[in-house]
Design a protein around this nucleic acid. Structure first.
Length: 93
DNA sequence: CAAACTATTCAGC
DNA sequence: GCTGAATAGTTTG
């Protein structure tokens, strides 16, 4: 676990449900605005893909970037989180 | 330590 | 919309 990776993980895990952040943004927050690629690498080699919402990290220009389990799953998860967000927003289920 | 790799991004056409 | 170049950190030998 490298320091940069640590920061990236923290930032990524801080992303709220239904929200997405771009690799660039994450890199910027990590203190290395030009390390967006490194961010992708780290997320790819992340230690716990399941506890890290890598699916909330997308490319810029409203694109999706990549995903360990496949872009399909990523899209699905994003959509799912959107629904979850809706559920959390409403007072009754 | 150096080289290769990359889930990227930007500029040019 | 696609191609090519650039940047920065991780990984491997």
């Amino acid at each position: 676990m490298t320091p940069f990776a640590k920061k990236v993980y923290k930032i990524v895990t801080e992303i709220p449900i239904g929200e997405v952040r771009t690799y660039k943004l994450v890199a910027q927050k990590a203190g290395k605005p030009r390390a967006y690629r490194a961010v992708g690498q780290i997320l790819k080699h992340n230690p716990y893909p399941l506890i890290i919402p890598c699916h909330r990290v997308v490319a810029s220009n409203n694109k999706l970037g990549g995903y360990i389990f496949g872009l399909k799953k990523k899209k699905l998860l994003l959509d799912l989180e959107k629904e979850i967000k809706q559920c959390l927003a409403s007072k009754r289920y």
